[in-house]
């Protein structure tokens, strides 16, 4: 059963993925090349999507509500 530390760890992983995705998006917006558009969609949005999904999974993971 996950404890509070496990939940926090999951949130931190989700946040790290989202922050990485946001940074990729910011760099792509500055870079402004056709390749940047692809990186924005292919890597930036994928990282953010993974982070959001990881966060949502951590919410419904067994024991998440109780431990918090």
């Amino acid at each position: 059963m996950p404890n509070a530390n496990t939940i926090e760890k999951r949130l931190q992983i989700a946040a790290a993925l989202i922050i990485l995705g946001l940074l990729v998006e910011a760099v792509c917006l500055v870079w402004a090349r056709p390749l940047a558009f692809l990186i924005f969609v292919g890597i930036g949005m994928l990282l953010m999507f993974a982070g959001i999904v990881f966060y949502l999974i951590s919410l419904v993971a067994p024991g998440a509500g109780r431990s918090q």
Partner: peptide, 20 residues
């Protein structure tokens, strides 16, 4: 962790599409 990233991604994608 949910609302803000989606907002950023939507605005960023819109900006990138317009620039393209």
């Amino acid at each position: 962790l949910f609302f803000l990233p989606i907002l950023c991604a939507t605005m960023g994608l819109s900006s990138e599409l317009e620039r393209s």
